[in-house]
């Protein structure tokens, strides 16, 4: 298999629905917590070390072949906001469709049967990485990067932020992204022996609260 498959999976244009989600950025922009590149960077940093770490570890664990049903349950327990659980399942279903078309694999078919309305996206992403011949660290990188790139792209649209500034934010986060992806992959390997409780559960109160506020708006640009 090829490492370059990671580029296909991590490409922002991979047709798995991510473009319609802001990763909480739309709520934070409206609340006045993201106003410029500096606050976007702090937002993304906080997201990376919380939701990003959790999803990267789930993806890595799924890529290692841990039971996706247990991982999906772990993802549910780590996502108190029902709006975020709904978004994660919707994105998981979309990722499943794209992955099955891209890297047909019996484990993807089996997962699609188990969760016809979608498993949590990082779990599907991990099984997709596995189908593409990628390893747990690759899946973790992809998920951790996604956790911040979507918010950065959305903020470019929401604030008409200079796209070069937004890309600069992602570049400055790269060393932390390395650390998060590797920590996630380590936790996933521990989970093989110790069970899914070994996976991180880092939370971000304002992401959860903001997601519920956002879901109640009558008019919004992004689905989450």
């Amino acid at each position: 298999m090829t490492r370059a498959a990671l580029l296909v999976l991590a490409d922002g244009r991979f047709p798995a629905g991510g473009h319609a989600h802001s990763g909480g950025a739309e709520a934070a922009v409206k609340a006045g917590r993201i106003t410029d590149a500096a606050s976007l960077e702090e937002f993304c940093r906080g997201r990376l070390h919380t939701a990003g770490l959790v999803s990267a570890a789930l993806a890595a664990a799924a890529a290692l072949g841990l039971d996706p049903v247990e991982l999906d349950e772990a993802a549910e327990a780590r996502t108190p906001s029902p709006a975020l659980r709904t978004a994660a399942r919707r994105l998981g279903r979309q990722m499943m469709r794209a992955a099955r078309a891209t890297w047909p694999h019996p484990e993807l078919d089996a997962l699609a049967r188990l969760f016809p309305k979608g498993a949590h996206q990082p779990v599907v992403l991990g099984v997709a990485a596995r189908a593409a011949g990628l390893g747990p660290a690759d899946a973790a990188y992809c998920s951790a990067y996604e956790s911040v790139s979507g918010a950065a792209t959305a903020t470019v649209r929401l604030l008409s932020l200079d796209p070069f500034d937004a890309t600069g934010v992602l570049a400055r986060l790269a060393p932390e992204l390395d650390r998060v992806a590797l920590a996630a992959a380590d936790a996933a390997r521990r989970a093989v022996d110790e069970g899914v409780d070994a996976l991180p559960a880092r939370s971000a109160p304002l992401l959860e609260i903001g997601a519920e506020a956002h879901a109640a708006w009558a008019v919004r640009l992004f689905a989450s």
């Binding site: 934070a28 917590r33 702090e42 990376l48 919380t50 304002l206």
Partner: peptide, 12 residues
């Protein structure tokens, strides 16, 4: 603590 804990995504 890992970065961003006091930022707009976490505690602000």
């Amino acid at each position: 603590a890992p970065g961003g804990w006091d930022g707009p995504a976490v505690l602000a």
